[in-house]
Design a protein around this nucleic acid. Structure first.
Lengths: 142, 142
DNA sequence: ATAAATGCAACATCCATTGTTACATAGACT
DNA sequence: AGTCTATGTAACAATGGATGTTGCATTTAT
């Protein structure tokens, strides 16, 4: 895994689940397929569960599963569930500065970044999890 | 300094220069005002010089100054000169994956991020360096 | 010559993300 | 009950990118 990894991992996993909705997957299985660690998987998917996109069951035969129809989950839902900010600096406020140039600057830049972040979310809202599942998929068997 | 720092430093410095175009500033002066290090300043401003936005002179009485009119320098020029990518993952290609789901996913996400990056640049193109210089500025005296 | 500036390389520090280990807890099966 | 397998979570290690720092060569005005 490298960059953008939380969002990639989340979308990747959800997409596979969309291809085989009934199947319960363990974090170990998912981690193995994604080339990462079960704890990392649980961290990421835990956020999706908090957002109501997934359910998890503990104990024997436990694991993870979609909480709702795949075509009702958009990329934006996933993105927002993860608290990611792909637009650097679009969250958080500018530090106060004694310099009026700096202050005015930050205000302008922040405004632009905030707008761009919003339009990113709008774009992500156009795609659902079902939109990316190809006909040939060795993992889910479809 | 914290995050977004290269762009902030660049815009901040250029804005001050816009208020007093004739004045030559050393990297030490600039670093002092911005609360950072002269070497960092030279690194950042060096990129702006490569892009033709600034000139620098070595030796005694050397320093930095605008290479062209402040109102002909947009935020986009500065942003592009720095090779920053404020939209994470919008640059670089996806790593090849054995998994077709992953591949399709990356393609979609990359497309969106690329578009968003482009619209960020468009937004930045709307503002020039002169647009952020306030009437009261202790540093440049204007 | 000397002083003052940039240019640049090499290294150190910091910080966020990811990866790892360990363990408590919960549920299914015998 | 007891065991096995899973999640949940905390604590810590490793990694990587950005920033900060030091040192020195080079250039230029005095």
């Amino acid at each position: 895994m490298k960059r953008n990894s939380r969002l990639s991992l989340a979308l990747h996993t959800l997409s596979h689940m969309a291809g085989e909705p009934g199947r319960v997957r363990t974090s170990a299985d998912i981690a193995d397929h994604a080339g990462t660690n079960p704890v990392v998987v649980r961290r990421v998917l835990g956020k999706l569960r908090q957002a109501g996109l997934l359910t998890s069951e503990k104990g024997h035969a436990g694991g993870w599963q979609l909480a709702k129809a795949a075509d009702s989950i958009t990329f934006a839902d996933v993105y927002l569930a993860l608290d990611e900010r792909l637009v650097a600096g679009s969250g958080g406020e500018a530090e106060p500065s004694h310099c009026s140039v700096e202050t005015g600057l930050q205000a302008r830049v922040s405004e632009v970044l905030h707008d761009i972040e919003a339009s990113l979310v709008e774009r992500l809202r156009e795609t659902t999890i079902t939109d990316v599942h190809p006909s040939s998929c060795s993992y889910c068997g479809s």
